[in-house]
């Protein structure tokens, strides 16, 4: 028994693509699809928070939009009894991320918070990570977008303005995580549940998104993650995403995301 568990642990260690035996935090987002009504507040919040440029209609048509979070919609049935399903999809921060193995210059890696982070200064724009990403979460800067004179005051000073030729993706608002850690350090305490709220979760009017630390058994996220409605996107690919969805349950008791 003990030998088996030891071997299993060892194998688990070896399979871990990060370089950490244990993450300091395992930041996770739980999205309750029962509450999501597809309003798109998370999308606009993300645009505002992360200095995302608005690329315009023509570039959007070439699928060059720079949205870090998008709302996928699935329409089921004909007009009178039509059912629309919404799934907000962002970077899933996979624990076994395909993009990390892909990058030739090690610009994307896992950090000690269980986040899949992108180093803009290292990125050379080979586009490999976007090809490997099964969730289509990565966005490429085809051009340098600059906001005009009065609007450049809107830029978030904690986030870089990316330039042409850089791959980018959702960060779980890492600048807010950093700020929360800073605050916690000032108050000489550990990071507690509810300290960090990404812009999308903050903007969500129905409170469908909950963000927290999965390593902390008392956090809202770890309680929600035990729900029987839990599922993760494309789990069969074994990417081990950090974003957990909760199924939407219809009147007849059928989950809509059961496909």
């Amino acid at each position: 028994m003990s030998i088996f568990s030891k071997v299993k642990d060892r194998l688990e260690d070896l399979r871990r693509p990060g370089y950490f035996k244990k993450y300091d935090h395992k930041f996770t987002m739980v999205i309750d699809l029962d509450r999501c009504n597809g309003c798109g507040a998370c999308v606009s919040a993300c645009y505002a928070e992360n200095n995302l440029p608005v690329v315009g209609k023509e570039e959007c048509g070439k699928s060059r939009a720079l949205n870090w979070i998008r709302i996928e919609r699935y329409v089921e049935g004909e007009y009178p009894d039509v059912k629309v399903k919404f799934i907000p999809v962002m970077c899933q921060h996979c624990s076994k991320a395909p993009c990390e193995t892909a990058c030739p210059v090690y610009a994307t890696y896992h950090n000690q918070d269980g986040l899949n982070v992108q180093v803009y200064n290292r990125c050379v724009g080979t586009f490999t990570c976007a090809t490997y990403c099964p969730y289509d979460a990565r966005r490429f800067n085809w051009f340098t977008y600059k906001r005009e004179k009065p609007l450049d005051q809107q830029y978030n000073p904690d986030v870089t303005v990316r330039e042409m030729g850089i791959m980018e993706k959702g960060t779980f608002c890492i600048q807010r995580i950093r700020a929360a850690k800073d605050r916690a350090k000032d108050e000489k305490r550990a990071l507690k549940d509810g300290d960090v709220t990404p812009a999308c979760a903050q903007a969500c009017p129905t409170g469908a998104m909950v963000f927290g630390d999965l390593n902390d058994p008392e956090s809202r996220v770890s309680k929600l993650a035990k729900s029987p409605r839990r599922f993760r996107l494309l789990e069969e690919l074994n990417t081990d995403p950090s974003v957990i969805y909760l199924k939407r349950v219809m009147k007849d008791g059928r989950g809509t995301s059961e496909e």
């Binding site: 000690q112 986040l115 600048q175």
Partner: peptide, 11 residues
Amino acid sequence: VNGKDCWTCHQ
């Protein structure tokens, strides 16, 4: 602590 992680300083 975490002093050599990229995202400790880079943003």
